[in-house]
Amino acid sequence: MAEKRRIKLTVNGVEMEGEAEPRTLLVHFIRDTLGLTGTHIGCDTGHCGCCTIIMNGVSVKSCMVLAYQAEGADILTIEGLAKDGKLHPIQEAFWENHGLQCGYCTPGQIMSAYFLLSRNPKPTEEEIRRGLEGNYCRCTGYVNIIKSVKAAAEKMSK
């Protein structure tokens, strides 16, 4: 078996490190080694988007990345959005617009919305639908998720 080694990376602005094998997936490293369980695992095959995080500025599915590939990377997870006890505008918008039911898919939806809005602060409904195509929700029927992203865009442009 390949040996474990320590890897360092920045998560939510904090330098962190932990042991990983070459085959350790980034999502397991984040959840089990770093203890940040806000990033979820749904399908484990790259389809559902539950495990979406921001890595070096772009959204990725962390179940499809090796932890070693994230060595030295700048990672943002759902835990990094709220600041000083205040929710991020995207989180607020999901709350206010009932953009979640069970909440399982929500961290991934929000991280995808975060990437979309970072590139395109005023997306059309079509662009929101396309931006969140890689995130499945088994509860909401998506209508309120789209509403939430629209509302978040408005909040953030103020």
């Binding site: 790259g46 988007g49 979406t52 772009v58 959204s59 990725v60 599915k61 499809m64 990345v65 995808s112 990437f115 979309l116 396309r130 931006g131 195509e133 890689g134 995130n135």
Partner: peptide, 9 residues
């Protein structure tokens, strides 16, 4: 191709 996250990587 796939979706935004797949296209990003």
């Amino acid at each position: 191709i796939g979706d935004q996250q797949i296209r990003n990587r």
